[in-house]
Write a protein that binds this DNA or RNA. Sequence first.
DNA 1: GATGAATGAGATTTCATTCAT
DNA 2: TATGAATGAAATCTCATTCAT
Lengths: 207, 207, 207, 207
Amino acid sequence: MKTRAMTSTSNASKQTAPATPKREAILSAALEAFATRGVNGVAVPEIAERASVGTGTIYRYFENKEALVNALYCEEKRALRRRLTEHLDPEGEPRALFDEFWNRLVRFARERPAAFRFLELQDHLAYLDPESLALEHRVLSPIRAACEALQQRDVFRSDVRAEVLMTLIWGAFVQLFKTERAGYLSLAEADINSARDACWHMCTSTR
Amino acid sequence: MKTRAMTSTSNASKQTAPATPKREAILSAALEAFATRGVNGVAVPEIAERASVGTGTIYRYFENKEALVNALYCEEKRALRRRLTEHLDPEGEPRALFDEFWNRLVRFARERPAAFRFLELQDHLAYLDPESLALEHRVLSPIRAACEALQQRDVFRSDVRAEVLMTLIWGAFVQLFKTERAGYLSLAEADINSARDACWHMCTSTR
Amino acid sequence: MKTRAMTSTSNASKQTAPATPKREAILSAALEAFATRGVNGVAVPEIAERASVGTGTIYRYFENKEALVNALYCEEKRALRRRLTEHLDPEGEPRALFDEFWNRLVRFARERPAAFRFLELQDHLAYLDPESLALEHRVLSPIRAACEALQQRDVFRSDVRAEVLMTLIWGAFVQLFKTERAGYLSLAEADINSARDACWHMCTSTR
Amino acid sequence: MKTRAMTSTSNASKQTAPATPKREAILSAALEAFATRGVNGVAVPEIAERASVGTGTIYRYFENKEALVNALYCEEKRALRRRLTEHLDPEGEPRALFDEFWNRLVRFARERPAAFRFLELQDHLAYLDPESLALEHRVLSPIRAACEALQQRDVFRSDVRAEVLMTLIWGAFVQLFKTERAGYLSLAEADINSARDACWHMCTSTR
DNA sequence: GATGAATGAGATTTCATTCAT
DNA sequence: TATGAATGAAATCTCATTCAT
């Protein structure tokens, strides 16, 4: 209701809205705050202050707090997907492909730690609308396709379903950085590489 | 006898308080609610209602909401630790040991899904006091010790630090059930077993 | 949603809720405030203060401000209806009946000026739910029936539809007190009686 | 020419300001909106949108929302007064005069329903300044004079004070259209005419 | 002059906590 | 000891008004 401040291009709904500086500032401030204390742990005026914006301004760009969370989730999921799939040749040499994929994840986690953490939050699930949740699939489906292809080519083990294998790698990776962030672990370059090797073996070895 | 519920036993602090039925009802109700909607998404009176207890009663057993969260966290972490370590012979045959460990995790996740989910929540981090957080170590240290022992015996690969290996397995396992809970995956017995095998290979294989 | 503070008897919905002192205080404070400045002109904390009650307490008794307005409207419409119809013999001598009816209106307007004014407010129409609006009919229908009966008995003129006649009297009466309240008119006993006579003539005379 | 819109003509204050198209558009949009949802129920930017004008533009023509309400009230009261008094011969044949007066009211209510409704709103009372309120008198005084004259000529009954009689007619008339607007009544030509007759009898009959 | 994005004071509503019973 | 009605601080959201363009 009321005039929507921005209108999107004709494409599918929940399109990334045009990036005005204020909108970016709000999303960025919200991301940092949510990543640290969870969606329910952050008050809207606090986001406004971090974004150097009036409280009311947030409501010009987003219908309500829930819409802000959804927009943020979609933007970041899309950014992650872009990072993982862009210019990646799924037909390439398997091990190189796997390493490249792993490195892209590492770069995302290192360069955008708040985004990485936010995407893995649990407590925003209550906020996410079906459309946002659908994005999850769009991120994972190319990865699953790659897993299946590698199973076909007998590179990856076939005694584990592709979805399961994918989940194991994803979980292992996420936990690595989550544990580091919690201060229980400090990851040297070597640790990350050895973890990558271990995951590769998880996918390929059968004895 | 006017002893405050919290300070009854002489032992170290945050000791499991005497288990009165009301206290149990409160913890159990809180666990279910928190697991579903996050700590910040649940109002105290709602916990009281689910526990069939007056709102004020919660404050007889717990100083405040934060204390309730911490007590819950500690109880559940301890329960998990007990499940994982009790009657487990760390000197046994490695693969059997690993399988047993994996199966215990599975049983915990299956029998106490709310507890499992609650322990992995992020949004209670702000609530947890140092003491609660310390418990994390107490749960993980015997596992790390086991990992290290297996590395010594050349069963587990040594090119990955024990903490890292442990983290990878833990993350893989948690993600499996998280994904199932989100509805993206349904885990058959065979899936869980094949995942276990894959994790075993991650730890042992080096080529 | 949430626990309703009070439950009603088994009868039809929007039953007058049991009259607790706080609830009465809130309704009474709201009535005074709304009558003076309109529903949209009064903030909830102000009602709370007038009622010597915490702001939150209002939300224990009423779902939201709108529900408070509706409850108030219903209670007052019912009170008015009771006043107008209670122990009134519709078969009595016409002029005496008319005078009695008029006097009852006068008493209501004099004794409960805020209620009288509130019921005639226009700006709460946006707030009223269908059920509240239906009450309007329940108040007016016995009056219309009386008008029709008097037309049948050739006491009231028949060249004006009963609904129209009723509306004219009602409007004339309301305006009398509205104008007095606005300070444009001061009504002596004699004025009210002469107005009553004039209205009687409006209903009966045909030349 | 930097003259403020409000202070242009030399005449008495709150003079009808020069009628620029934008000013008219704003007043007209405000009238429609206020009539439907009350002064407090309409946001200024919404008026701007309905008027196809920038929000800020409203503040070029009116000091603030209150001033807008007052200007609107004055314009419409004046329009009503003009309609009722212009080219009306107060010395004419009484019944014809009364009918003409009634018909003018009907035409106003029919042709400018929003204005009619707005003038009867209660929730703008808090907004009206003394000057606006004084207009009420200017509208009513010629009518009262006519009533008094008719009483002198023994056409109107004299047992009711002129102010009271006037109030009764006015109230009866207003209620008629208010009830129609609320959907409780639909007024045919015949109803309006019979109501007029009844009101005439109210003023003239004494037995 | 005209605009409408931006603002922050203030409105509505929620909820952790208290306290009289 | 147990209760749950009551509270008010804090959260979400709205809107009259301003001001840079």
